[in-house]
Amino acid sequence: MTFEIPKVSYSGKIKEIPLGRGENIITVGGESCYPFHLFEGAIPHPPKIAMEVYDKEPEDWPDTALEPFADVAGDPVAWARKCVDTYGAEMIALQLASTDPNAEDTPADEAAAITKKVSDAVDVPLIVFGTSNTDKDTEVLKAVCETCEGKNLIIGPLGEGNYRAIGATAIGYKHTVMASTPIDINLAKQLNILLGNLNVPDDKIIIDPTTGALGYGLEYCYSVIERIRTAALIQEDERLQFPIIANFAKEVWKTKEVKLSEPEAPLLGDQKKRGVLMEAMTAQCVLLAGADILVMRHPEAINLVKESIQDLMIKGEG
């Protein structure tokens, strides 16, 4: 019998944002349909994965997460190189975790110098995260912008409290910004409007809607991403037509469930595989909701997700 495939008519399209520079530019966005809905729209740029690198040796990671990086953990440059050379990272996400005033409070110029070294060491696009401390991030990210002029870094998070200061600097030094809001579609839209008012160009904005881990509030993020995507594609919400980044690896790997060993919790199975799947499934969910860039940690989780993206990008036959 014949039946009609009920297609959605999309009136909007996600903006295409070029990341990085020169020959190594990677473009994200550009979708004119829901995630992987290839039967009714185009996805010119499949989602990308950025591998995490930390500015200082991490203290609270479970061994299962640290193991692949044990030889480079204290050296962000070597770490970033390993991600690219050994694991084939498409992008690097440098987490300037030590700048947190509640942690080591690494000064802004030092953080900027580290960022510069990392950005010089790899030619893939470089994402730089502060610690969501409004004032410190302002200091740090401004310094990063200045030091890495012309590299088109992707910097954030820019929040309500510091979007002006960081946004202005990013304009001057031509970087891309991540507009970060706490799991709320209207706040996300509002911040994008404000960035536009500040004259941040439309091809320099990525939405960071805040992402939690599987079992730790993922459902909120999942829905807010789906709502942003729906608004952008169907409801002509022009200020939400930007690619979405999901920065969840750090949330996943601090949960209790990835830290428990198998003897401690036999019903939870193999500790490493469990951690890898917790991360990979968080990724899988946000991918299906509409994320364009995934910030991830474990190489095996990354491989699983890469395969998943490949599988979903094939317009499949039975």
Partner: peptide
Amino acid sequence: MRKRGVEFVDGT
């Protein structure tokens, strides 16, 4: 100009 100009944009 760039260093100081930023201050005009971000309101410092």
